[in-house]
Design a protein around this nucleic acid. Structure first.
Lengths: 166, 166
DNA sequence: CTTGGAATGTCAACAACACTGACGTAGTTT
DNA sequence: AAACTACGTCAGTGTTGTTGACATTCCAAG
C-alpha cells in the first residue's frame, strides 16, 4: 500500500490482492460503462439486449442473424424476441439474402440509426472522458489487457470488423 | 470534419472509431471476465448475483446488508432473495449487530469460503494470464482507465476496502 | 427431382435477476 | 411518544436468458 512501485522482476502486479482489486475495478467500471444507455432505454420498452443488437447491426450493416448470434452469444430464440420488437417498431429492417435467400440481412432504418446514435453518443462520451483523463499510454494498456481477457473465439469477432453484405 | 489535424497525434486515441473499438473490447472482455464463474455456477442453483454477494462479503467480512446494497446497486428485495438462499445453504452467516441490533453483519462460513475460493481462483487465473501477457505498464493503464470509467459514487466503494465490523 | 440438411422463425415453458409498491417488526434517535 | 432506520417479506411485473419441439424455406447432393 505504502509504495507499490512496479517491479516486473518480482511480478508484483500479479499478486492475488492486485488481481482482486482489478476484478472489482472491472465490475464497477462495467456498471459505469452501461449506466448511460441503460438509463436512456429504461421505461422505453427496450433494454441492454436491444442496445447490443442495434450496436452490432450498425457496425456491420447487412450482417446475418447467424453472425449476430455468434457475436452476441445468445440463443436464436432470445435474439429473435429482441429483433422482432425492433423490426415491428421500424428500427431494424430484415432483407432476404440475394445469394442465399434463407439468410436475413439486417439493417438499421433511419429511426434505428437515430436511436443508435443517441445511445452510443452517451456511451462514447463517458469513454472519451475516461480516456482523456487517463491519457494515451493508459488507453493503450487498457486495450491490450482487454484483448487478452477475451475468449479466443470472441477475439475473432472483435477483430473482424467488416462483414457487410459480401 | 474531413481533416482536423490539430493535435491529431495526441488525440488520435479519442476518435469515434477508436472509442467504438474500445466499447466493443469492453463488451467482449466482460464476457470473458464472467465466463469461468458463470460456468462453475451453472446448474448449481446459483448465478452471477450469488457470486457477487459472496465476493464482497469475503472482501469485507462483517459488512452490513445496507453496505452491500450500496455496493451492488440493487434493491433490497433482489439482494435478499440471494442472501436467503446463501444463508439457508450454510454459505453465509448473518449476525445481529452488537452496537446496533437492527443491523445484520454478514460473514462467510467455511463452505462459503470454499465456494468463494473456487470462483475467484478461476477468475483470477484468467486475469493473471491476461496481465502477464499484456505486461505491467499495460496493467497500470488498464487500471487507470477503469477507475475513470466508474461513477464517482461507485469509485468510493472501490477505494474503501476495509469496512469490517468497525 | 427428390431428399437431406442448413438457416430461420415460432410457440411454449421456465429460470435468474432485476424492478416497484406495500407492509411489518425490531430497534434507535430525537 | 413519535419519527426514523435497518431489515425482511409478500405480491406482482419486466427483461433477458435458457430448453425443447416444430414448421418453413431453400440450397445442394444424390
Amino acid at each position: 500500500m505504502a509504495d507499490d512501485r512496479i517491479d516486473s522482476d518480482t511480478l508484483l502486479f500479479l499478486t492475488d490482492e492486485q488481481l482482486r482489486r482489478a476484478i472489482e475495478a472491472m465490475f464497477f467500471a462495467y456498471r459505469g460503462f452501461t449506466a448511460d444507455p441503460d438509463r436512456l432505454l429504461a421505461g422505453q420498452g427496450y433494454g441492454r439486449a436491444h442496445h447490443r443488437a442495434v450496436h452490432f447491426i450498425n457496425r456491420s450493416p447487412g450482417t446475418t442473424v447467424n453472425n449476430l448470434l455468434a457475436i452476441l452469444g445468445v440463443t436464436k430464440q432470445s435474439l429473435n424476441r429482441v429483433l422482432r420488437t425492433l423490426i415491428e417498431d421500424g428500427l431494424v429492417e430484415s432483407r432476404v439474402g440475394q445469394r442465399d435467400r434463407r439468410e436475413r440481412h439486417l439493417h438499421l432504418t433511419e429511426a434505428g440509426r437515430d436511436l443508435e446514435r443517441v445511445l452510443s453518443d452517451a456511451q462514447r462520451a463517458r469513454m472519451r472522458t475516461a480516456f482523456r483523463e487517463a491519457g494515451p499510454e493508459a488507453v493503450a494498456g487498457f486495450r491490450q489487457v482487454l484483448e487478452h481477457m477475451m475468449d479466443p473465439e470472441l477475439r475473432r469477432h472483435f477483430n473482424a470488423v467488416k462483414e457487410g453484405e459480401r
